[in-house]
């Protein structure tokens, strides 16, 4: 099984993307997609990326729901800051937080989440110290931001174990 599908999740994902792009579930498309996803799985083997084993799909769903809520909320917050910037200068600043994530893929996902939520920008991650420097647009309350990052970290840790 492992020789055919070195990265099962990647292969399934590629097949799904192929079906979406072709917008069909005809037999021919599925066969072509399967061939491509298996072949690309082998190619990826050469690149030797870090393996991680995401688990607990239900928890993942709940986590993504909370992230989507955060994205909506921070979109509105950042819009308000931009519209009011003439009257009130944004109270922005840098924050440092110590992370306890080992998994590289989890870190990449955290970067995606923090960039997708406007208002936080990932700046620098120190691999040895495991500390992350990020910039916050509207620092009303430092602790709230630190807690948010810690919450993401806990969620990702649960997912990647």
């Amino acid at each position: 099984m492992r020789t055919w599908f070195p990265y099962p999740l990647l292969s399934v994902g590629l097949l799904l993307i192929w079906l979406l792009l072709n917008q069909s579930v005809a037999t021919g498309t599925i066969v072509m997609g399967t061939i491509l996803s298996v072949a690309l799985g082998w190619v990826t083997l050469k690149l030797n990326p870090t393996r991680s084993h995401p688990r607990r799909i239900l928890r993942t769903l709940r986590f993504s729901a909370s992230v989507i809520l955060d994205v909506v909320r921070s979109n509105i917050a950042v819009m308000l800051v931009i519209l009011r910037v003439g009257r009130r200068a944004p109270n922005s600043g840098f924050l440092t937080v110590d992370l306890d994530l080992e998994d590289e893929n989890a870190l990449a996902l955290l970067a995606c989440i923090m960039t997708a939520t406007p208002g936080t920008a990932w700046l620098e991650y120190d691999r040895r110290r495991k500390s992350l420097l990020f910039h916050v647009l509207d620092m009303e309350n430092e602790d709230v931001w630190l807690q948010t990052v810690k919450r993401y970290e806990a969620g990702l840790k649960e997912m990647f174990g």
């Binding site: 950042v78 819009m79 931009i82 003439g86 200068a89 939520t117 406007p118 920008a121 910039h135």
Partner: peptide
Amino acid sequence: IALIGSLGLLRLPDFYTRLHAPTLATSG
């Protein structure tokens, strides 16, 4: 939302705060 994000690029005071503005367009 995308327009407000671009406005933010214009109106925000320094580089790091301007970094946040385009993410409005790429997310919302």
